[in-house]
Nucleic acid binder design. Structure first.
Length: 918
RNA sequence: UGGGCUAUAACUCAGUUGGUUAGAGUGUCACAUUGACAUUGUGGAAGUCGGCAGUUCGAGUCUGCCUAGCCCAACCA
């Protein structure tokens, strides 16, 4: 294909083009970062998608944002790295693998750890490959040579290093605490993995008899089965009703245990009976109270949610079966007072989809306070990291303040196995709560450590549990760069420039990264945190797997092209952090918005086709830049608009206004360049070969188009590369340039602003011109004059300035307005029968040969007059108001006076026209 | 219950530090189309800016209250 080829399809076909350039970029390693190269670094690491299947629209959105930022910074000369990768997602993938083996009728234990992990890795390979391919089909300019996975060798080393260090510093401890237990996945889960759901439940009221036989205390509960583990009963010490009971004891029904009545201010006197049963082993609040009053903790439950030996007759029953049976029993015993309907929220396990059970168990914890304090310090002292938009800073800060210790152990197999080895030979060759252990980087080191303490004759067993997924993702910004080794990447690209992520994982992830980074690298992991919103479906609802209302990004890419999808997602984001809704016709599987973006791509395609056809085989380089002295006014105008657009685009991107930047480009390309400039320049292109005017038009067209492609490239990388390569013949002429750089638009410098070519006065003149043309078109349409028919037009104005301007653009008006005879005058001779309109103070008159619909014309003029008179009234009212004249700034008053004068002039013109029609 | 976000044309959304005559795209209606593009062009119609009050010479924009929707957190037994 050459630039002279006029046989380019009239339709842009994204499919072939996108695949072609993706391959080109990959083959030439265009996006491979070089830490030793020049340039201030700019680095974004991907928020690693979970290997749980495929990417959804939210990922596409986030990737489009990141890639646009990355491509922009690369083009403005920053040393850029976009590091891709995926996350192992411990619980989520375990759930998937569990399901797989359950379908085969087996259990985790049947398979054994090794076989289980093989299956998990196989799944990871499949899902990871899908995800990476999806990212590639979006055209992201990531450095694939640096692709990472949270469980690959390097990152596993980082995880072990972090764990061992934190342990040695006393920031990791093992202890018996109440944790959120998911009986479905048989693992502890974090607070964040619990999701509250409103359920219709009951509030059961029971009577517990006083041991001395003097009466009863009434308690209420939503979980009757836990009463089997009650070790106390609490009332508020200020509660007059019960004050005197404190210190007495109750006899727990069914169980027969004698439990004390304690006073604790935690108890709300107004709620229920003002009397609370205390079950320290099965409720977080009771756990705290139990600790305060030294109550025993009796665990009545097994890990699978069934009751254990402490539950007496109820042993072996599932918690929900036991609930019914306990109630029944209490009823039989006469201890059931009443059952109330009660709507309350119950924490459900995010992954297991069953109610979470607070359970006492031995787990590993990270002491959070020293870590969160450091992150808080960075935020408060250095505003680091900087949140965009600002309001998320508060959310992040509040979270850091109220953080509790972080339970990091998970009773799963898929993940980073905890680097702790138990000296099981000390406790009958099994791991017990009191089994001594050593924490070490690997088994050999563990053995050495253990032998020092327990002698040579020992047996070790590694902790079977794995770490919370977020432990490894907390290290992601630096572990991906090679930490704990001091690599060139780490030196150059860390801290990262920007983290682009959704608000939903500020707690899960962002806060953990800042804490880990603060501790291990002594700085915050990124300068800025750019928070984006969610992609909602066509009804404004969150897309989710369970609702089945997701929209497949690949389907959209297939239908409209990756550029169109990217562009749609980006133009929709206006205020940062705002959710965006994706319009979609579910039946037809079509999206009007993406279609509009596809149309925009096609418009650019055809405009480029037109330009290339008219450059007559020359590239913009060959044609050279236009000589300033020869520029005609419309050339100056489009250049002014172009540089204005460069300025706005750059400034918008710099402040994360990607949507505004994208919209600005759309308007410039479609309205200014296609609708006006190309139209204005057409007749010059039909001129003879030697014509300077023609040459300057060609040069300007080539120059501006080249600039447009660069400006738009970060947003629509494929189509711009395709057109640019055709236009400039860059890769064909010379696959690499003199410095050995690959010829690609992606590595071209982004256009710079040329302030001296921005001319706002000229732009104003052109807007008058466009208004005049608009009025002519309007009058033609209303008078049913055929669009092609050349007509006579009289433009009348008293303003000398306007006359000059109109004269200078006479040929444009004739061309575009399809005007045969154009008279520009300041005199008001009666032209006979005309149709007329007004723009500013320019009167537009079109003499009519046929019949004029006088009534229609009058009505139209009258309507305009009404509007103008309303304006006059409002403006003069204001100017007559002493308050306004005295207090408003001068320029505002001057503006109002000006507007009033113009409106009065308009009114005068319209009135005169109306008079003539009488 | 607390916090946050949102409310502007039929739909999706813009609207800078208050400056008065509120914009765009989609849709809709009319007309057009043989020298880039029907994935197009030109033109038209369409809005008491959620409600009430306040500040101000002036409020879509600032303040308060209210209403509706969404999100987060706590929701206590």
């Amino acid at each position: 294909m050459t630039a002279t080829d006029t046989n380019l399809s009239t339709k842009y076909d994204p499919k072939q083009t996108e695949a072609k350039w993706q391959k080109y970029w990959a083959d030439k390693e265009v996006f491979k970062a070089d830490p030793s190269a020049e340039g201030e670094p700019y680095c974004i690491v991907i928020p690693p998608p979970n290997v749980t299947g495929s990417l959804h629209m939210g990922h596409a959105f986030e990737s489009a944002l990141i890639d646009t930022l990355i491509r922009y910074h690369r083009m403005i000369g920053r040393n850029t790295l976009w590091l891709p990768g995926t996350d192992h997602a411990s619980i989520a993938v375990s759930t998937i693998v569990d399901k797989q083996i359950k379908a085969e009728g087996k259990s985790r234990e049947d398979l054994g750890r090794e076989e289980y992990l093989k299956k998990a890795w196989a799944w990871k390979e499949e899902s990871g490959t899908t995800i990476i391919n999806q990212l590639k089909s979006l055209g992201v300019s990531a450095d694939w040579t640096r692709e990472r996975f949270t469980m690959d060798e390097g990152l596993s080393e980082a995880v072990k290093t972090a764990f061992v260090k934190l342990y040695e510093e006393g920031l990791i401890y093992r202890g018996n605490y109440l944790v959120n237990w998911c009986p479905a996945s048989l693992s502890a889960v974090s607070d964040l993995e619990a999701e509250n759901q409103e359920v219709d439940g009951h509030l059961w009221h029971f009577r517990y008899p006083l041991t001395d036989g003097s009466g009863y205390m009434e308690v209420a509960t939503t979980r009757p089965e836990t009463m089997l583990g009650d070790t106390g009963d609490a009332v508020n010490p200020n509660d007059e009703r019960y004050k005197d009971y404190i210190g007495k004891t109750l006899t727990l029904p069914i169980v027969g245990r004698e439990i004390p009545i304690i006073g604790d201010e935690f108890v709300e006197m107004e709620f229920g009976t003002g009397c609370v049963k205390v079950t320290p082993a099965h409720d977080p609040n009771d756990f705290e109270m139990g600790k305060r009053h030294n109550l025993p903790m009796i665990n009545i439950m097994n890990k699978d949610g069934s009751l254990n030996e402490n539950a007496g007759d109820f042993q072996g029953q599932d918690r929900f079966i036991a609930r019914k049976n306990v109630v029944k029993k209490l009823d039989e015993l006469g201890n059931l007072v009443k059952i109330e309907d009660y709507r309350h929220s119950v924490p459900y396990s995010d992954r297991g989809k069953v109610p979470i059970e607070p359970l006492l168990s031995t787990q590993w914890f990270v002491k959070i306070d020293p870590l969160s304090q450091k992150a808080l310090g960075c935020l408060d002292n250095d505003n680091s990291p900087n949140y965009v938009p600002d309001r998320w800073k508060k959310v992040y800060r509040d979270w850091l303040i109220k953080l509790k210790d972080w339970c990091i152990s998970r009773q799963l197999w898929w993940g980073h196995q905890i680097p702790a080895w138990y000296v099981v030979s000390e406790t009958n060759n099994e791991i017990q709560d009191n089994t001594p252990f050593v924490v070490a980087f690997d088994e050999a080191e563990a053995e050495n450590k253990a032998k020092e303490k327990y002698g040579n004759d020992i047996k070790l067993e590694q902790d079977p549990d794995v770490l919370d997924t977020w432990f490894s993702s907390g290290l992601w910004p630096f572990s991906t760069m090679g930490w704990p080794n001091e690599t060139a990447d780490l030196a150059k690209y860390y801290p990262n420039s920007t983290l682009v992520t959704g608000f939903d994982i500020i707690f899960f992830w962002v806060a953990r990264m800042t804490m880990m980074a603060g501790h291990f690298t002594d700085k915050m992991p990124f300068d800025d945190v750019y928070i984006h919103g969610l992609v909602l479906d066509e009804k404004g609802q969150k897309m989710s797997k369970s609702k089945g209302n997701g929209i497949d990004p690949l389907l959209m890419i297939d239908k409209y092209g990756a550029d169109a999808l990217r562009y749609t997602l980006i133009t929709k984001v206006v205020g940062a952090g705002q959710n965006i809704s994706f319009d979609y016709d579910r039946k037809k599987k079509e999206s009007p918005s993406v279609e509009a973006s596809r149309n925009f791509a096609n418009k650019l395609w055809n405009a480029s086709r037109f330009v290339m056809m008219n450059l007559k085989g020359k590239t913009p380089q060959e044609l050279g830049q236009p000589d300033k002295a020869n520029l005609e006014s419309c050339d100056k105008w489009i250049l002014s608009r172009f540089y204005q657009t460069v300025k706005q685009t750059r400034s918008n991107i710099e402040k994360y206004g990607l949507g505004e930047a994208a919209k600005g480009l759309y308007e410039f390309i479609w309205n200014d360049f296609c609708d006006w400039y190309i139209e204005l320049v057409k007749t010059r292109l039909w001129e003879d070969e030697g014509s300077t005017s023609r040459l300057v038009a060609q040069q300007t067209l080539g120059y501006v188009l080249n600039g447009i492609l660069k400006l738009l490239h970060p947003f629509m990388p494929h189509i711009t590369e395709e057109i640019w390569q055709t236009l400039t013949q860059a890769a064909l002429l010379n696959p690499t340039n003199s410095e050995g750089t690959v010829q690609t638009l992606a590595l071209q410098p982004y256009p710079e602003v040329a302030e001296d070519l921005i001319n706002s006065e000229l732009e104003q003149s052109f807007s008058l011109l466009f208004n005049v043309i608009g009025t002519i078109r309007n009058l033609r349409a209303e008078s049913v004059i055929k669009p092609g028919e050349k007509i006579k037009v009289i433009l009348q104005t008293d303003s000398e300035k306007e006359i000059k301007l109109l004269q200078s653009t006479e040929s444009y008006i004739k061309d575009i307005g399809k005007v045969g005879e154009l008279i520009i005058t300041d005199s008001l001779e009666d032209p006979g029968q005309v149709t007329a309109g007004v723009t500013g103070t320019v009167q537009v008159l079109i003499p009519l040969t046929g019949l004029v619909d006088v009534d229609a014309l009058k009505a139209k003029l009258q309507k305009k007059l009404d509007k103008v008179e309303k304006d006059i009234k409002s403006l003069s009212g204001r100017l007559n108001n002493p308050g306004f004249v005295n207090k408003a700034p001068e320029n505002v008053i001057a503006g109002a006076k000006n507007d009033l004068a113009e409106a009065q002039k308009q009114a005068e013109i319209i009135k005169e026209r109306l008079d003539r029609l009488k």
